[in-house]
Simulated assay, not measured.
Amino acid sequence: MKKLVMKAIVLLCIIGLISACGTQSSSTSEKQYTIGVTQIVEHPSLDKAFEGFKAALKDNGFVEGENVKYDVQIAQGDMSNNQTIGTNLVSKKVDLIFANSTPSAQGALNATEEIPIIFTSVTDPLGAELVKAMESPGGNVTGTTDTHPEAIPSMVDFIATQFPDVKKIGFVYNSGEQNSVSQIEMVENVLKEKGLEAVKVSVSTSAEVKQAAESLIGRVDAFYMIGDNTVASALESVLKVLYDKDIPMFAGELDSVGRGCFAGYGFDYYDIGYEAGEMAVQVLKGEKSPAELPVQYPQKLKLVINKKAAEEMGVELKSAWDDMAEYIN
């Protein structure tokens, strides 16, 4: 009997040790992560990118409320707030910073060269001096860009071939956003190749956007909405002006088409946010450092036409577009 009791005690001890080891392993794997989120302004494109980012982390075991906490801070378009946010996140010693926009990434990088930074919605990572090279970023920053190499040429070609009466195209943009300046330069170069002219008006805040759009009426044949955060936050005010005057507005990204622009070549910001999230997963797991992860371009490019917007802007749909575009109502 004593032998049986001793064997039982030994067995229970072994089970206890195994259970303890299992508990220790589980605890180690369930490390708590804090991810700082800096975003220059709230608008659908950036918000969808953040949704995609969180989805990628969740799909890889980093679940909000369980082992991940997001510290989300919005700069409301204020560059001073933007820099303060970067400093605040660094002082909190977050495990990783998700920078959603060019100014957000620049502000984060100004605040730290140690904490990993994964960006998205950045138009020109090289021009913004975020990375040393697209293939080899070389520092603590990498991510996904919101510029597809074929997006602008494809959009301009569509305008030139399908709208022969359009000669002058209006642009409203914030010259304080480096990403916007880069896009304007790219669009102007392509427009010149097609014999088209860009007419530009610069703004500093979203409050100036409607008046800027109105100042272009009578001077241009169409509008082109680049990926500008300031204008995007006030897009509906521009659309109202154009609907009243039957002037078509083209877009450099698809969320603006969904909000009421006529047509655009682009991609879903959710997708580039998701791709940025997958990069963050590799960093958090210790598999790669930002320096080892090449900057990624959007993977899916398509032409989308908004039928309701076409009607509002006096654009007659052509059957030739059926094979070229995806329609939304």
Rank of each mutant, 00 (worst) to 15 (best):
I159Y: 11
S180C: 03
A213P: 03
D221S: 02
E236S: 15
F171T: 11
H148L: 07
A234V: 11
G143Q: 12
Y224H: 10
L130R: 07
L239W: 03
Q183K: 09
F158E: 09
R219T: 00
A151L: 13
D244H: 13
S202H: 03
A160M: 04
A234Y: 06
V209I: 14
V172M: 10
Y243V: 01
E177L: 11
M134D: 04
D221P: 01
G143D: 06
V203C: 15
A213M: 14
A133I: 02
E214W: 02
V209Y: 00
T230M: 03
E214G: 07
E129Y: 04
K132G: 10
S136C: 05
S233A: 10
A222G: 15
Q183A: 04
M249G: 00
T161G: 08
N189D: 12
I226M: 14
M225K: 11
K200H: 01
S215L: 08
E193K: 07
V201Q: 15
F250E: 14
A222F: 02
G218H: 04
S154G: 13
Y243D: 12
D157I: 01
V181C: 04
V220C: 07
D165P: 09
I247R: 00
P149F: 10
G227M: 13
M225E: 10
L191I: 03
P248S: 02
G176W: 06
G143C: 12
E197W: 05
E177K: 04
S202V: 03
A128D: 03
E177N: 14
S180M: 03
E253L: 13
V172C: 13
V131L: 12
V209P: 00
S206M: 14
N229Y: 01
V141F: 11
E135Y: 03
S180R: 09
I226Y: 12
N174W: 02
M249N: 03
S233H: 02
I217Y: 04
E177D: 11
S233Y: 00
I159K: 04
M134R: 09
E253R: 15
V203Y: 01
G143R: 13
V131T: 14
L196E: 15
S182K: 05
S182M: 06
D246G: 05
S237R: 13
S182Q: 14
G218I: 01
S182R: 08
S180L: 08
L242V: 00
M155F: 05
M186V: 04
E236T: 09
M134F: 06
T145Y: 07
I159M: 11
V166Y: 08
S237E: 12
K210M: 14
A198Y: 03
K200D: 15
E208P: 11
L126H: 01
K200L: 14
I159L: 11
S175R: 06
P137Q: 11
V187A: 05
T230D: 15
K200N: 08
A133K: 12
V209T: 05
A160L: 14
A151T: 12
S182V: 13
K210T: 02
L196A: 15
A234Q: 02
G143Y: 08
F250S: 13
D244Q: 04
S154P: 12
S204Y: 01
V238L: 15
